[in-house]
Amino acid sequence: MKYRMQKPDVRIAAGLLMIPAFLLQPGLVVQGLQVFFLIVLAAVHGRKIRIVMITVVLISITAMNMLQENGRVLASIGSFSITLGALLTGLEKALTLIGMIYLSQYMVSGKPRFPGRFGQLLSKQFLYFEHLVTTWKKPEKGRFIESLDSMLEEMEQGILTDEEMGLSNPPNPHSGKADVRNATPWDLGKAAGIVTAFWLGSVIGFAGIWP
């Protein structure tokens, strides 16, 4: 049987192909550029950029790693020394985490469907989730449990009716609509371009041209 890749799977495949170029990157400067690339990539594909989250992750992980002194001392504050090795290790780890978060965001931005019965169950979970998000009202004061209870009962009743009605094609995560279109040559070409650009940039680091 001829396999046709579905549209959302293209981004998953592209992301998986970019992971080695990112995780094996030896140069910190190139890694920083890769992270920037991944953030822009995720933003272009509709994901939110959280500057505060990026800043907090960068500072907290770097700071935590600097507590373990390693290498040349760059500066001292009282008895605490900022060392080059610890600073670089912290930055590398922080960039890796931020980069992987945004690479992950790009990969799931196509609203992938997962195969098999578990995939269907996951879709069903998102069906209920959408129902919760769209129908949840702020509960009356002191009646939180009752509101929660009504919501749970309503969902169970509602969905049983859906099943009786023959709900046969569970919706996609996030969108509520199934997206089972096959990937077009344009989708594949675009993803190939992104992967190629990412790998070409990474070669600068692998070749040791940039630190």
């Binding site: 069903k124 129902h131 919760l132 749970l152 049983l160 046969s168």
Partner: peptide
Amino acid sequence: DNTPVKRLNGIGSEIITKIAILAAF
């Protein structure tokens, strides 16, 4: 994809519904 989630490894549809509701919550 056109088969409703009725049973999963021998688990009945009512239980599956409850699992999906709690997972969504």
